[in-house]
Write a protein that binds this DNA or RNA. Structure first.
Lengths: 232, 232
DNA sequence: CTTGATTACCGACCGACCGTCGGTATGTAA
DNA sequence: TTACATACCGACGGTCGGTCGGTAATCAAG
């Protein structure tokens, strides 16, 4: 095809390759993403490619790292600023993380697209484990403090945190569906769908936490998601 | 090595190959289980192998099928025989499935060993999904009937069933640890470990079901597991 | 402007792998 | 004995991930 190819800085070339790999990963299962395919799409030779990456798996690791690293510091900052009782702090945590996720909705949807690709189950697992590993310590603390304050009444801290994270897992799938619905014109339907999901998660969260009904933990209001729902 | 090889019936050969594959799978991640390795271990040629299986993945599918198919009819039978109120029926279901699992403990431990192999994450996922797919309809029915009878008070049937299954997931890992502990001489410790786990799951199950405290759902007693704990 | 070192980049090549194919040996039924 | 079915064989082909010797662009120092 093309004999003349540009010479880039190492970093530019790396990110260019990672961009292409991320794209391919959202349309093919990883095992079908051939090195040859990657080379063709990125416009670089095999030798050039292996000058920047040590292996095919190295690329996958780099892609996943890049997809997750941005969110590393988000949760912690949210918690450190929050005040009030345990329920209020938990509410702040939920709102903070959700808001952060909303701001990075496109990226998250991209990750979901990749993870949902048939054949990428292992990747999905890795991403989820990584996300949990990051969030678990903070959640543990929040729950433990709530128990100590007598606001929460959990059966077992670890299992509760685990189940909470599991209960929240499918949120973004529903969000994606809701946005889809809005895109087809049924704005009210999408909004209702999303609201129902939020209410459901809120009730389940409070039950798992054994939260005093007088001071419940709250999910963010539907209104916060309107911008997200109407985006392309 | 050996030039003379036996001629078997198609079914015998298939099961022989599947046995070998199952063994290999518990010591290697699937991608490291080369066809050549399989051939060598099974004592058959490539042509012979591909006479019985269409591909390497075909073998994996057959192995997984064989590992799960035996338990297909177990749960249903348990439910059909149970009587009494919703809580009692749920208790019967828990006891029935657990007892069945106990009777097949060795097989289950084998599956766990395979699933826990690093690199077999996708297999683990498939097995779990299959197991859930099988159990979900019955559990849905049990929960819905309980709600109709006013015994259970769940937030959402589907999410409740999902969380229940998730809560029970790690049971066999704990069981394996407990048995390990008994094997090293600390029988009381292993028993306590197991009992604690059962009590934990019981409390969490009742909370998720919103079960009336007067008629709780019960996990099997620790005593039923003594035989299992003392086995090799 | 040389000179030399560094490095982005190239593509022929390698070994391992999965799966195929023509052919052989061992049944079994007419 | 003949005819057919099938269990089995191993050389071979194509594809894949990865290597390696070499080329050319870039830059710093003399």
């Amino acid at each position: 095809m093309n004999t003349k190819r540009s010479r880039m800085s190492a970093e530019d070339r790396r990110t260019a390759i990672l961009d292409v790999a991320t794209d391919l990963l959202s349309t093919h299962p990883w095992e079908e993403v051939t090195v040859a395919l990657l080379l063709d799409a990125a416009g670089i030779s095999k030798g050039g490619f292996y000058h920047h990456f040590t292996s095919k798996d190295d690329v996958l690791a780099a892609v996943l790292l890049r997809l997750t690293e941005a969110s590393n510091s988000a949760g912690q900052a949210v918690y450190e600023r929050s005040e009030g009782g345990a329920a209020a702090r938990f509410t702040a945590y939920l709102g903070g993380t959700t808001r952060w996720e909303l701001e990075h909705a496109d990226k998250i949807m991209g990750v979901i697209r990749i993870a949902m690709m048939a054949g990428n189950e292992a990747i999905f697992l890795k991403l989820e484990q990584e996300a949990r590993r990051r969030a678990t310590p903070l959640m543990r603390t929040l729950v433990e403090e709530g128990v100590r304050e007598g606001i929460f009444d959990v059966i077992d801290v670890d299992m509760t945190v685990d189940l909470l994270q599991h209960a929240w897992r499918m949120r973004w799938v529903v969000f994606a569906q809701a946005r889809q619905r809005c895109a087809t014109g049924d704005l009210a339907g999408g909004e209702a769908m999303l609201g129902e999901r939020l209410r459901l998660e809120e009730r389940m969260t409070n039950r798992l936490l054994g939260c005093d009904a007088a001071t419940p933990v709250l999910m963010p209001a539907v209104g916060e998601f309107l911008g997200f729902l109407q985006a392309p």
